[in-house]
């Protein structure tokens, strides 16, 4: 449903992506692995329209979205949960969720979606009227995911959801992602924590210096000597 081909992006002369290609199919979880600065975040930002592609093509459900503005892309059901969660810190949990559904004009439908997010993430329901910034890191990640769900994604892109979280919380976040996927939402998961990501992913790509150097089924990648050495060795 998502097809990225030969994508190139530069920031003021520094080339972050050099001909990156990847696909995400209906109902898949695809992991995007790589070290800091490999171009993972840039890839997601280009797909969601936050940064402009210099060259290459991004198609989503058959439409070329390479030059579309972010709000329009969100409206297509391609939703990006950014790195660092970017929860609206002084707004309540409930307001944060409502904002995720900014494009949903039907109040009843919006309320239904917010309730569904609460059902999936019960911790948020308890914290409903608390300010987003007062939540713990794990709860903020859940809020960021819940907020994206209210937008009604068919493809959810998550940037480093495990960042800064304790192993137990990472596992909980990964479980939530798997639940969301089992409800039929495709997931493009950017992670430095390759081990956690490959556990739930169907397929994966390894990127280095702005292009894919390796790809395949998650189980194969997890067993691949190069991946183990570079990304799984030190990670407990």
């Amino acid at each position: 449903m998502l097809e990225v081909s030969d994508l190139e992006v530069s920031y003021g002369g520094v080339q972050a992506l050099r001909g990156l290609s990847l696909t995400v199919g209906e109902g898949e979880i695809v992991a995007l692995l790589g070290n800091n600065g490999a171009g993972k975040t840039t890839t997601l930002s280009a797909v969601s329209g936050l940064v402009r592609a210099g060259a290459g093509r991004i198609t989503y459900e058959g439409d070329d979205i390479t030059r579309e503005a972010p709000p329009k892309i969100v409206g297509r059901g391609l939703v990006h949960v950014p790195e660092g969660r970017r929860v609206f810190s002084t707004l309540t949990v409930h307001d944060n969720l409502l904002l995720g559904g900014y494009l949903v004009r039907d109040a009843k439908e919006l309320a239904r979606r917010v309730d569904r997010a609460y059902a999936l993430l019960p911790k948020l329901a308890e914290r409903r009227s608390q300010q987003g910034g007062t939540l713990s890191g794990g709860e903020q990640q859940m809020l960021a995911i819940g907020r994206a769900l209210v937008a009604g994604p068919r493809l959810l892109m998550l940037d480093e959801p495990s960042m800064g979280l304790a192993p137990l919380i990472v596992a909980a976040v990964m479980d939530v992602i798997r639940d969301i996927n089992e409800d039929g939402t495709a997931v493009l998961l950017v992670e430095q924590n390759a081990k956690a990501a490959l556990k739930i992913a169907h397929r994966g790509y390894v990127i280095e210096n702005g292009r894919c150097v390796l790809d395949g089924p998650a189980a194969d990648l997890a067993a691949d000597a190069r991946v183990v050495e570079a990304y799984l060795g030190g990670v407990a």
Partner: peptide
């Protein structure tokens, strides 16, 4: 609070 995050909510 965060205009860039707003773009990702679909806000113009």
């Amino acid at each position: 609070l965060d205009p860039k995050a707003c773009l990702l909510m679909g806000i113009d």
